[in-house]
C-alpha cells in the first residue's frame, strides 16, 4: 500500500520524499489552455491558476527528479468531460507528457479520453479518476475495456464496499482510495457545478442561502419544523468539515478536514494499493504535514500494530479529538 502525495513544483519533491511519499500526482495546464478558455473551463479538477505546472520543461524536470528517487508521477486530466476540440488538445498534451517528459500515468475521468488513450498506446498508463464515479465492481469491469492500471474509488465508497471491490478485481487493476484532506458533499462525478472563484463550490454556497421547507407529510407542526431545521444545521456542519473545517489548515499549517487515518489497518487488510492525499494547491507545509501524518500511521499498520492502538495514534496526531469524535470528519466509518 503506497502513499500518494500531491505536488505543485519540483521544490517540494525532496521534502515529500523524505517524509514518506511513495508516489506523486500533479496537474499540468499550459498557458495556451488558459489563454483559450480564460479560467472558466478547467483542464483538471483544480483552478487553472496556482495548482498546476505550466511548461513541459518544468514537467520533464519534475518527472526526472521524481524517477531518480524511485517515485512515479501521475498527471490529472480529470475534468468531467472534454468536447471533441478539447479532446484533441488533451491527446496532444498526453502524447508529449508521456513520450517527452516520462509521466507514468494520467488520471482520467472522461470515458472518451480513456478510450482515446487506450487506442494511442502511450508509455504512460491510465488511472480512472474518482470523478468517473466508479461505485461498484461491474463498473470497474466495464472500464477495464479501456486498459486502466488503477481505479480511484470515490470518497463515498464505504470500507465494506472497498473490501468487496478489491476482492472482486483481484490483480486486474490497482485500487486507490482517499486518505486525507478535502471532501465532497456530492458524488463528485455527478456534480454538474463549477468551483469557479466567482461563485465558489455549490455545496458551501448553499449554506449561505435563504431556505424554506415545504412539508409533504401528514401533518406539520412547530416541532417538526424545528426537527428539519436542526437536521439542516447538522448538514451544514458536516459540509463545514468536508470543506477542510472551514479553512483547510490550522493556524500552525497542519492539515484540517476529512481524514481516513483510522481506516488504514482495514484498508491494508483489504489489499488497497494506494492512499491518496488530496491538495495540489495546498501550501508546502500542509503537504509535508499531511505526508508525515499518513506515513506515521501506515508505518505502524504495516508493522502489525493493533488496530485500536493505530486509531488512538491517529486521533492524537490530528490534535483535535473533538473533531475526530464529531463523526463528521471521517471519510470512512470504522468499527474499532
Amino acid at each position: 500500500m503506497k502513499i500518494l502525495a500531491p505536488i505543485r513544483e519540483i521544490d517540494e519533491l525532496e521534502m515529500l520524499h523524505a517524509a514518506g511519499a511513495e508516489e506523486l500526482f500533479c496537474g499540468f495546464v499550459p498557458k495556451d489552455w488558459m489563454d483559450r478558455y480564460q479560467g472558466a473551463v478547467w483542464l483538471n479538477r483544480r483552478s487553472t491558476k496556482g495548482s498546476s505546472l505550466e511548461t513541459l520543461g518544468d514537467m520533464r524536470a519534475l518527472a526526472d527528479a521524481a524517477h531518480a528517487k524511485g517515485l512515479p508521477i501521475f498527471v490529472t486530466f480529470n475534468a468531467p468531460y472534454y468536447t471533441a476540440e478539447q479532446t484533441d488538445l488533451v491527446m496532444e498534451l498526453a502524447q508529449r507528457l508521456s513520450e517527452e517528459c516520462g509521466v507514468d500515468a494520467f488520471i482520467v475521468s472522461d470515458v472518451n479520453l480513456m478510450l482515446r488513450l487506450s487506442e494511442a498506446r502511450l508509455h504512460a498508463g491510465t488511472h480512472v479518476s474518482s470523478v468517473a464515479a466508479t461505485l461498484n465492481l461491474e463498473a470497474i469491469r466495464f472500464l477495464l475495456n479501456f486498459g486502466p492500471s488503477r481505479v480511484i474509488l470515490p470518497r463515498s465508497v464505504t470500507l465494506a464496499e472497498i473490501a468487496s471491490i478489491k476482492k472482486g478485481v483481484g490483480n486486474s487493476c490497482e485500487i486507490e482510495v482517499f486518505m486525507l484532506n478535502d471532501g465532497c458533499a456530492f458524488e463528485e462525478g455527478f456534480c454538474a457545478t463549477t468551483h469557479h472563484h466567482s461563485v465558489g463550490a455549490f455545496c458551501t454556497s448553499l449554506s449561505g442561502m435563504q431556505t424554506d421547507f415545504e412539508w409533504h407529510g401528514r401533518y406539520f407542526s412547530v416541532r417538526r419544523h424545528a426537527w428539519l431545521r436542526r437536521n439542516l444545521e447538522d448538514y451544514r456542519e458536516w459540509v463545514w468539515y468536508l470543506n477542510g473545517n472551514g479553512c483547510g489548515a490550522t493556524a500552525k499549517g497542519l492539515p484540517y478536514g476529512p481524514c481516513g487515518l483510522c481506516a488504514v489497518p482495514d484498508l491494508l487488510k483489504s489489499g488497497v494499493d494506494s492512499l491518496k492525499i488530496v491538495g495540489r494547491e495546498a501550501s508546502p507545509l500542509k503537504k509535508l504535514a499531511s505526508v508525515k501524518m499518513v506515513a506515521d500511521i501506515v508505518h505502524r499498520a504495516r508493522h502489525g500494530v493493533p488496530k485500536p492502538v493505530v486509531i488512538e495514534r491517529a486521533i492524537s496526531l490530528r490534535k483535535a479529538p473533538e473533531h475526530c469524535h464529531s463523526g463528521y470528519m471521517c471519510y470512512y466509518k470504522v468499527d474499532a
Binding site: 461505485l135 470518497r155 463515498s156 465508497v157 464505504t158 458533499a185 456530492f186 458524488e187 455527478f190 456534480c191 454538474a192 457545478t193 455549490f202 455545496c203 426537527w227 428539519l228 437536521n231 439542516l232 447538522d234 448538514y235 458536516w238 469524535h325 464529531s326 463523526g327 463528521y328 466509518k333
Partner: peptide, 22 residues
C-alpha cells in the same frame, strides 16, 4: 444540479454523530 450517496433527508433518521453516511 448535483446528487450524492450521502442524503440530507436520510439524516433525519439518525442521531447527530451517525448522520450523513454514504
Amino acid at each position: 444540479i448535483s446528487t450524492a450517496r450521502v442524503c440530507q433527508a436520510a439524516g433525519l433518521g439518525y442521531r447527530k454523530g451517525e448522520k450523513f453516511q454514504p
